[in-house]
Amino acid sequence: MSFMQVEDLKVHYPIRGGFFNTVVDHVYAVDGVTMEFERGKTYGLVGESGSGKSTTGKAIIGLEKITSGRIIYEGEEVTNARRKRDSAYNRDIQMIFQDSHSSMNPKKRVLDILAEPIRNFLKLSPQEERKRINELLAIVGMSEDVLLKYPHEFSGGQKQRLGIARAVACNPKMIIADEPVSALDLSVQAQVLNFMKDIQEQYGISYLFISHDLGVVRHMCDNISIMYKGRFVETGKREDIYTNPKHIYTNRLLSAIPDIEPETRNERKLERQKVEAAYREEQHKYYDEDGKVYPLKSISDTHKVAMSVDEKERV
């Protein structure tokens, strides 16, 4: 059973201009996104820059104003709701940012950074609080002598781990991870991903994993949605997307991922050019007159693809 539903989420930004600075048009950053989240699963959100994937994440956690649509958390609507600062939703949905450095107050010590969510949401005595912080550090594999250090004293990977520790401080149900590893080196990235998986197994947290790296998404996610111009072009289980992609945009994205098999690179290049040519010729079939993605249609229990009405009949 899903504990949280997102229904037809839309975030539009007005473009102002002309006489009296009136609203002349909108940027359709997120244009009708529907998702469901279950406990302990990882949901991948993939797309190129500007596809609206980060905006979706921010809208869900409440950092962007939602234009229309609903977010329902455990049966209660939480869309744009005026919430108390210590409401259950604020406590249970947490975020890990791409740039962990700028997400931490440079004047605070690790102790206070990690204590902040605890002080906001849990009523603990100073001793219990200290105990909890030590637990958190143990979860992300850091020793207690970092407590009095400042964020700038850490490397990128360590800071990202502190970001994870902060996000799990109040036992959240879901963590929105917006490109958590894209600024990190390969070996450090591996470490952070391993931690994220361990924590998920231990505490049954769900992740909304936003990334442009299809390799990382494949490693982490159970369900994957491919986003283009604010809408989903395809959504399904990991196997659905990677072994049986239906939408031409998904195909194009998959064929562009570099593989570490140098022997077959020429075949891959030909394949890539074929897909690219097909994409140029046939893309009008996959998008409507305004260049927007069609609504999603189910083609199996788990797999949904955006397609026009007549194409549905062909399948």
């Binding site: 080196d185 390799g215 991922i257 570099p258 593989d259 570490i260 690179r265 891959r268």
Partner: peptide, 11 residues
Amino acid sequence: THDLGVVAEVA
């Protein structure tokens, strides 16, 4: 580059 995928594609 730092990307081994890119290396495998072109180098």
